[in-house]
Write a protein that binds this DNA or RNA. Structure first.
Lengths: 332, 332
DNA sequence: CTGTTAGCGCTTTCAG
DNA sequence: CTGAAAGCGCTAACAG
């Protein structure tokens, strides 16, 4: 039925149609200011008529630049990443750049493989929450310009979402609501994000003069959150979770235990990935995921333009989003 | 600090290192069976030493094939799509093909633009739940081979998730649980998916001899679901929602109205995007999103191999996933 | 302002 | 089994 891809007209045919040389056609698109206005018009018209579209491969071969970038994430299905991807894609698109997507499946080896496959056909790569070792990342960096998101390696350009500011605000909020004893439920112990969050929570609790306990779960999941809720020590009247998924797990278990949120217990999440879709809606820390994606692509494109990858460290602070899972301490 | 992308070694340097011609190097990678085993070994070794990676652009220019495909979705942040993308990417990756991602932002014009940008640098494109008109899609199809997901256009290869089978199973399940009167909450009226679902629900309800009402919401969102719950007629003891998001909205509103799910009212969702993350967990219809992504890429790759796009219509049926939002009718 | 020429890195006949 | 030569479509000197 349908035939194969129709052969696209090339620069030579456009040149013939417009009665100019191939160079002129090329210039009409890339350096129109070097040409007579009238000529540019004629060429563009001819191209339009023939349905001409420049051949990316040939251009890339000639110029050494691809007009493409790639973004690699650990797991597209983790709701944290789609907003990053979306913003990155949109930003790249605005700059006329196409985006390859790689899903590393939470696997460092696969991630490195993807990177090297992309490296030969893009100008730069955005690595989001990379699971690779620092050594692997440095190896990658020597292969192709890259920008990191949520990974702090000196010497490489990186965009970091500092959830610390938002978590601190959460602690202050709970203190103001009369809570004197709270608990922080850790995420992956060696993740940069969790370090920011737990430290921030601890420091701010001290500053507010309230007690803080911590609890660890192996992976930041809904199930882990449910489990964590069974481990709560006696005393706390509020909890801050590493992320929204864990927070949701906590809420589910409290519901099973007939402990009312927020009347009897307050919960704060982080990353704002579950939006308002819980009942009660979740007080959480904004994660600026879209900003991170946008900034990373901007940074990458700028650095590529300048022709050198500098040691840039771009910190995005966060804020507390008040919803209905927090309330004054019962009887306070 | 970091320099620009290091210049990759090319085929000529490998040839020199291995003491063979460039042709031989090329063959060592693409047609090793034409060469002496020993030669292949030597070339591969030399390539390895130099860190050689073939230049995609040059290959594409020469062969006319890119080794890339693109996938375009209306909105990456809609949880329906990430599993499709993930499966597609994984499948393509296994075939050594890289994947461009386009987010059309629910906008047909943007979608067509993305398509034409991709068309010049990929071998084929997967269009998921396209928002374009049939005319637009046909125009696209003449530009570049494509496979549709959840769009039924005769003459184009397409993969369709038939949620009808799962919805029918849901109706039978509710009937078996003693419900005599149910309601179906519509999604977008002119969407192929909603047509499948509503028809299926109606037919199966008749077959089971139970009453079914329908209700419409403008867009399938959480908010719309909450609103819909306020519009329930008297009588029904169970509802089937167009998708999980709407179902979640229904549950939230019922919770506010102190109507217990599932004890007093049963809810069924569709698409299984919220997994087990609700309380109570949601009985829903599986959506085979991953299968759809995988099948679409398989189909695309096969058709490209054959060199012609045939009229293929691939239907994926679905099933009911029993969780905790459905129960026997109170007092039945 | 416009054209001529050369060549990016690769694969593919065609000859050995 | 291996090599020489040509050329994919484009852009970037270099001349006019």
């Amino acid at each position: 039925m349908k035939k194969d891809k129709a052969k696209q007209p090339n620069i030579t045919e456009v040149a013939k149609a417009a009665n100019v040389s191939r160079t002129t056609v090329s210039r009409a698109f890339n350096n129109p200011e070097l040409l007579a206005k009238e000529t540019v018009q004629r060429v563009l018209q001819a191209a339009e008529n023939l349905g001409y579209a420049s051949n990316h491969a040939a251009r890339a071969l000639r110029t050494g630049r691809f007009g493409n970038i790639a973004i690699i994430v650990p797991d597209i299905e983790n709701p944290f990443f789609p907003p990053v991807i979306r913003a990155a894609q949109s930003r790249a698109d605005a700059a006329g750049v196409c985006v390859f997507l790689g899903d590393a499946d939470e696997n460092a080896a696969r991630e490195e493989l993807l990177f090297s496959k992309f490296a030969s056909q893009v100008d730069g790569i955005v690595l989001v929450s990379s699971r690779m070792s620092q050594a692997q990342i440095l190896r990658c960096a020597s292969l192709c310009p890259l920008v990191l998101i949520n990974r702090d390696i000196k010497g490489l350009p990186r965009v970091l979402i500092d959830s610390g500011t938002g978590i601190a605000a959460a602690v202050r909020h709970l203190a103001a609501e009369g809570h004197r004893h709270i608990v922080y439920v850790n995420g992956p112990i060696n993740s940069w994000s969790n370090q920011q969050r737990s430290e921030s929570a601890r420091e701010e609790a001290h500053r507010c003069g309230i007690t803080i306990d911590t609890l660890s779960v192996p992976r930041p999941t809904y199930a882990a959150g449910k489990h964590a809720a069974t481990l709560f020590p006696q005393g706390p009247t509020a909890a801050i979770a590493f992320d929204d998924l864990v927070a949701q797990g906590l809420m589910a278990m409290l519901a099973e235990q007939k402990i009312k949120v927020p009347a009897a217990f307050s919960i704060v999440g982080c990353d704002d990935v579950l939006g308002e879709y819980l009942f009660p809606t979740l007080t959480t820390v904004s994660s600026r995921t879209a900003d991170a994606g946008k900034s990373a692509v901007d940074l990458l494109l700028n650095l590529l333009q300048e022709g050198e990858m500098r040691d840039v460290r771009y910190l995005l602070d966060t804020e507390l989003i008040l919803r209905n899972s927090t309330a004054p301490r019962a009887g306070s």
